[in-house]
Design a protein around this nucleic acid. Structure first.
Lengths: 356, 356
DNA sequence: TTGTAAGCGTTATCAG
DNA sequence: CTGATAACGCTTACAA
């Protein structure tokens, strides 16, 4: 059919080496415990001569192991997710698994992706999602057959491993930090309502205020949907600036939003952090490059990806049974945009000019 | 062996539907031209009942088509490459191909990745590289068997399709733009020497100067290795500031470097673009978010990825023979950091305050 | 220590 | 229009 010259088969290798296919198979799979070294040698040479590469597909069919895991990922084009993809691929490779990449944003795409991975007979799946509220039906069904690990998948239960991070505490820590720096009116730009992560951060914001004995003021909360564009974010910032008793600090819904907030402030002649502290969320690669460098609540996406693939490969090898739930902490990365560095420097030089 | 309950097979479906496996196979593959609709219907129902999913691995073995392409990518964690990965996955999926992801930075990893993909019997490979000078030996060997397309792979020949972009003209266009804005002393931060892309940009810089009748001044060129860290970039910027007749514009080796350059300038009280114009390369997502928003030479990585996967799937379907070479143009994205916007506004209001 | 042969789940080639 | 049946390339009891 296909006129392309065929690859060498195990049979040809066997013939050339003057042994049986079994022996070749044994050599190739390191079942060489009780085997004459000379035989092994001959086989290896024969394989080398023919440029033989075993067919993984034939092998998979025979031993029912595809040596492949699926990676389905929403928003594949988001820079942050890359780190996760990167470690997942690496850890998988180290465990001798290949990674089949699948994008899926909508529920429809999700279930199609899962069908597809099932047909490919992947041995397990890592699911990198946005935190949209979404039902896990397809996932639960899949997890009934093969190990599944989700990252950043809202919801709970379902009988599979989940890795998430603690948005609530991440956000409240940021609030407490700003409070400790003297801020009493802390604005919050909240993300899209359809994401559980957004809601949790909002809760974290409120929790943080409560922790500090500050009152929750609706005027200090505006919308800045990080899935929208810069114009939207600018509006959010301006809304916060327009309140009569303007905040002295702004918690942005992510780093990109924070960048636009800083820009908006600076264009209006406000200095960051002197006139207004700004804190982001994500710790994108550009956060330290902004001027001033951005204080931010780090999304542990890399760690989450790593944990996820480790959970998966562990389960593949050892077959745990109880589904595991991992909640990572979000770390506050203090840089210059919140004024803490300056405050510290001031303290050092006994200068009392702390932000009030 | 594996105690897991087995998936339904085509045979079970056939039995349940009261037909032969051939018929089931025909239904599933839409070879339904001359077939009693009732038969088709029965088969479909039987499959549905059993929750049948055909095994791609068995199918692959039988028809010698894995329906999979390999994507090997260097610097998987670089935000820019995301866009490429994203379109590649999408286009592949639309063409009913799956994507097997493989990281490979070193030549060693490269050849290991190629072996692996060969064993997986991928039908083609897209190769997303850095522009390091590197020999194509392994690639040429692979391309002898299956279609290969490289993106950003320096070198030429090899009998496979290559997609690149024109660094020289991208850079010279930036120089000409700055010249048109009145700049006569244009500094250049060059990237790592081991990358062909860096060299080409340097050539482009020189070409641009020549185009404008400007003389090449070694003092106006400093190093800022974009694979290094912010400290390195800051040094680069400072080197340029230290020259007696300081430049009025700086071409940075990429957007991250440009961000640090702007930051360095601003920290020294220099205004961008008034006191110094800055231009980057890449057009990273954060470029428009910087203050001022960054004028930059856009890397057409998304377009390159798209072109690459299209070339690949075309070749897979139709089997062209002559290797194709695609060179994309780099577009200058004019924003605020070069002063052009301001100049335009000034012109509009008949204000003669153009940068000199 | 090595060989024989029966699968693995499809597709594809022919007959009917 | 549909059904046997032989590949596909490898693994793996089981035999020798």
């Amino acid at each position: 059919v296909d006129p392309r010259r065929r690859r060498a088969t195990i049979e040809q290798v066997a013939k050339l080496a003057g042994v049986s296919t079994t022996t070749v198979s044994n050599v190739l799979n390191d079942r060489t415990d009780a085997m004459r070294p000379s035989t092994r040698q001959r086989v290896l040479e024969a394989a080398e001569m023919l440029g033989y590469h075993p067919s993984q597909v034939a092998r998979s069919l025979a031993n029912r192991q595809s040596a492949t895991v699926g990676l389905v990922i929403a928003e594949i084009a988001t820079p942050l997710f890359f780190n996760a993809v990167s470690v997942i691929e690496r850890v998988a490779r180290e465990g001798n698994y290949n990674v089949l990449l699948c994008h899926a944003s909508t529920p429809d795409e999700e279930s199609r992706a899962l069908d597809l991975l099932q047909e490919k007979e992947v041995e397990g799946v890592v699911f990198l999602s946005t935190s949209d509220y979404r039902d896990d039906e397809a996932l639960v069904r899949l997890a009934d057959g093969i190990p599944v690990v989700t990252v950043n998948r809202s919801g709970s239960g379902g009988g599979f491993d989940r890795v998430t991070w603690d948005n609530v505490h991440g956000m409240s820590a940021a609030v407490r930090h700003l409070h400790a720096l003297g801020h009493r009116r802390i604005g919050f730009l909240r993300g899209p309502a359809e994401r559980q992560g957004s809601d949790e951060r909002w809760q974290g914001y409120q929790l943080g205020l409560a922790d500090c004995g500050l009152e929750y003021t609706p005027e200090l909360v505006a919308m800045a949907d990080y899935t929208a564009g810069p114009e939207d974010w600018r509006h959010g910032a301006e809304a916060l600036l327009a309140v009569p008793l303007r905040p002295t600090a702004i918690l942005a819904s992510d780093d990109s939003v924070a960048a636009v907030v800083m820009k908006t402030l600076q264009e209006r002649g406000l200095r960051v952090p002197d006139d207004m502290a700004v804190v982001g969320v994500d710790d994108q690669p550009f956060a330290p490059l902004l001027n001033p460098s951005l204080t931010t609540v780090k999304l542990p996406i890399l760690e989450a990806g790593q944990k996820a693939i480790e959970l998966l490969t562990d389960r593949l090898r050892e077959g745990r049974t109880a589904p595991e739930r991992v909640v990572l902490t979000m770390e506050l990365i203090v840089r210059d945009s919140c004024g803490a560095m300056r405050a510290a420097a001031a303290l050092d030089s006994a200068d009392p000019a702390l932000p009030v």
